[in-house]
Amino acid sequence: MSDSVNSKQEDRRDFLKAGGLVAGITLAPGLLFYGVAQSRAPEEGVSSRQRWGMLIDTTKCADGCNDCVTACNTENGLSGKTGPQDSQWIRKLNVKDLHTGYVQSLPMMCQHCENPPCVDVCPTGASTKRADGIVLVDRHACIGCRYCMMACPYKARSFVHEPLHDQKPDVPRGKGCVESCTFCVQRVDKGEQPACVEACDAKGHKAMVFGDLKDPQSAISRALKSTDSVEVRADLALGTGVRYQGI
């Protein structure tokens, strides 16, 4: 009696094991794909299985359009003032070829380098690159020495020169620290697009594509594969997360 029960249970266990194995083999690739493509659970940390990046098509970026800048200011609580001491996380550049006279317009911001000079030079480690490639300033450790601003080839960083009030709850900012574009990390962590990209899409220009460079199925990966794109100051070999096409 007991023997037969045991053997039956063992049979069942074997069956379940086998079934599980088969199911595992068939489902695993799908599950893995699911794991990469879906946004993280809130308690799960970022991982290097993702790398956020952006592709900017300068041919679609309109001269005189400033929507990405405005959206950034609104999302992150920047004043929008453009004095020499005011913060600008993203700015529109007018680039004129000196030989041909051809003028292009493009947005410039933190390029979220693979090997960021700002992270290298930061004495306290406040400048940091998350596992998913987003370069941030940890304001809790920033002493305001501004060495990162000296080191950044893209002039992407700003120093907060005066006390601030009424910051956005998701975007803490304050006097005496250095700051720059975060790819709207507060939105990306929720599975949303950066504000600039959303604004560009809303305007119908669709000059900016944001996504996971390590996901071969993502729109940005496919776009990068099919078009020629460049890093700004590629000679420095920083491996920027932001790439440009059309320049």
Binding site: V69, T82, Q88, R91, K92, L93, N94, V95, K96, D97, L98, H99, M108, P153, Y154, K155, V232, R233, I247
Partner: peptide, 11 residues
């Protein structure tokens, strides 16, 4: 930023 180019911006 862009060698051989003239650049200007609000920044």
């Amino acid at each position: 930023l862009f060698p051989g180019h003239e650049v200007h911006s609000s920044f």
